[in-house]
Design a binder for these strands. Structure first.
Lengths: 175, 175
DNA sequence: AATTTAGGTCAGGACGATTGACATATTTTG
DNA sequence: CAAAATATGTCAATCGTCCTGACCTAAATT
């Protein structure tokens, strides 16, 4: 009844489906795939540069958010990155050993370890963000109406609704 | 000589940089971060569903592209995903063992293994794409002028220029 | 017949992430 | 004040996904 054969087990058929998926209501293949490719290349520049330092994406993310929010506490970092303490541990240690970040005991709660970039860490973070911003800028300039605001709203809308407040808080007033 | 004192070695200072980065020409922090958060949540839905099957992102990507382009050959898959044969191996085997994909010897070149989804694989792939499309649709609807075309052009512009033709080919005529 | 190509596989390793269990210092609470 | 909760760190074991290198078969090309 399916495939080239007749009368197969009709519970499960392993026959190949040869036709591509039909355009269906609510199935936006192009945007789904473009988002995948766009993110891949968005992250690639930084990946290449970080490789020279022996760092990976985890290092990049930590470096970025600590720079963006100097004085950030470990718990905040874990929440934003959605990773565990145990995953963060080695990454943080390497960044500190490399002289890119420093830890300072919390002035009020001395259990806390406030995270700050060094000047070296700040410089590298800015350099990485520059590369990514350059790509974004180029992409926006390729639009007819260079509507940065639409792109921003779109990306914000892609975030899980319950998370949007948290992200908006991170961005502070400067959105 | 170092720490809270003055007149440190001026080669390297490990003092914390306490101020956030100043808005600088060509540094678009909001978009850089939104892209990160957006991708994180974009991928999260599918991650959760695939976890039930014991699959990861690699399985998702393979399932997606084989569904999108039934009859795809292993070499094409490697090129799109930019991974090695050795990495693909286990993933492909699991997808085949799970009855989501099948391999068929190439009709002209019998060395080739043409990859096809089964009906089961097609169903799962469509379901995953539905979740992602739903999020995209919602994000676009949150815009004043619901300009899907701008978003598409933006994402396409984010792709490495030398790669854009390759991606356009994958999308075929239906962009 | 020799070489190249498409694909598969084995070994060994790296990285980034996980969970579980536990340790330490400090703050908060009863 | 003692007990509990909190912030952080660390050890151990494991997993998924990627890597390189080496080698294999089958089939196509030269």
């Amino acid at each position: 009844m399916s495939g080239t054969n007749t009368l197969e087990s009709n519970t499960v058929s392993n026959s190949p489906v040869v036709d591509p998926p039909q355009p269906e209501e609510g199935l936006d293949f192009p945007l789904v795939e473009l988002f995948f490719f766009a993110y891949r290349d968005f992250i690639a520049d930084a990946d290449d540069m970080l490789e020279e330092y022996g760092f990976g994406r985890a290092h990049h993310r930590v470096l970025h958010f600590v720079n963006r929010r100097p004085g950030m506490v470990v718990a905040e970092l874990l929440e934003i990155l959605r990773i565990t303490k145990q995953s963060l541990g080695p990454v943080l240690r390497q960044l500190i050993e490399s002289g890119l970040l420093v830890q300072v005991a919390g002035p009020e709660d001395r259990r806390q370890r406030l995270l700050y970039p060094t000047q070296k860490g700040r410089n590298l973070s800015i350099e990485l963000t520059h590369m990514q911003s350059r790509r974004i800028k180029r992409a926006i300039e390729s639009l007819k109406n260079k509507d940065r605001e639409s792109i921003k709203d779109f990306l914000f809308g892609m975030i899980e609704p319950e998370e949007q407040d948290l992200v908006e808080g991170l961005m502070d007033k400067e959105r």
